[in-house]
Design a binder for these strands. Structure first.
Lengths: 146, 146
DNA sequence: GTCAGTGCAAACCCTTTGCAGAAAG
DNA sequence: CTTTCTGCAAAGGGTTTGCACTGAC
């Protein structure tokens, strides 16, 4: 039990604390979902989270997965990435960065802010305040014969 | 009949020709949809196109609206803008440009390329070729209490 | 014991599809 | 006349919701 806990800790520094820090009560299901997101630190669709969480014996329902991801996003624990009209991706990396999106494979990759500079930001439309900047570089598989 | 045609021409330079130039057979319904897109030159969700096209007496079915917008997008007549997981926007402006998206109102505004410069584009992931760059500046209504 | 969280299934909404009838060339 | 397009209604797929049960504190 102690070793299990230690093992988890190495991969996921205090997930429960992260949840609390974002005003989220750390329940079992939420912890399971958060561990998936923060151990691999990739991008996940709700469906992928569903599968990753439920490959073991302990199960989390679909409704809870969706509700929890929405909760995490609202509270700033993860970032929603909108690149595909058919599904939302959740990104555990909330620091300022951008994305490659492979339209053939559905793969999503981070682009560090230092690798892409935006200058001459235009004035915002009247009566609005900035809420975020998303840069998506769409790519295709080179071999795509199409 | 002549004056009607002239009137349309002022707003929409040769819509039929545009369709043909993109390899699209200009049928009545497609012309009606294209006229909506190219007379006001704004951004439309499929539903907004549906409503605009069908405010008159001549009607176009929902299936045809969706299929036609998809066809237009595949053939490069319009650009799909993915900013909201709940709906796709269609942009009759196919020149290189970016967008403001008001997450409160759903309003979409163009940003000219000259008003926003991207430099230091990172190397593409191995085995991929560029397919497009989308920059979305998300804004909120200033007064949003939320 | 009280209140928030969870699970299930059904509801939702946008979008796509199957197929018969209509229109275009 | 042949081929493509259109319309309708039904299916599809990701996401949300209603409500009773469970678990957290």
């Amino acid at each position: 039990m102690e070793s299990l806990k230690e093992n988890q800790m190495t991969q996921n520094p205090d997930v429960a604390g992260m949840l609390r820090a974002h005003g989220i009560l750390p329940t079992q299901q939420r912890l399971m979902i958060a561990r998936v997101l923060f151990s691999r630190r990739q991008h996940y669709s709700a469906d992928q989270v569903m599968n990753s969480v439920n490959d073991g014996r302990d199960r989390v329902s679909k409704a809870t997965v969706y509700n929890t991801l929405g909760l995490f996003a609202r509270n700033g624990l993860v970032r929603e990435v909108i690149v595909d009209p058919t599904r939302v991706f959740y990104d555990p990396n909330t620091s300022d960065h951008h994305h490659f999106y492979n339209i053939d494979t559905g793969e999503l990759l981070d682009i560090d802010t230092s690798d892409l500079r935006i200058s001459d930001l235009p004035e915002l439309p009247e009566g609005t305040v900035a809420a975020g900047v998303d840069v998506i570089i769409r790519v295709r598989a080179e071999t795509a014969t199409n």
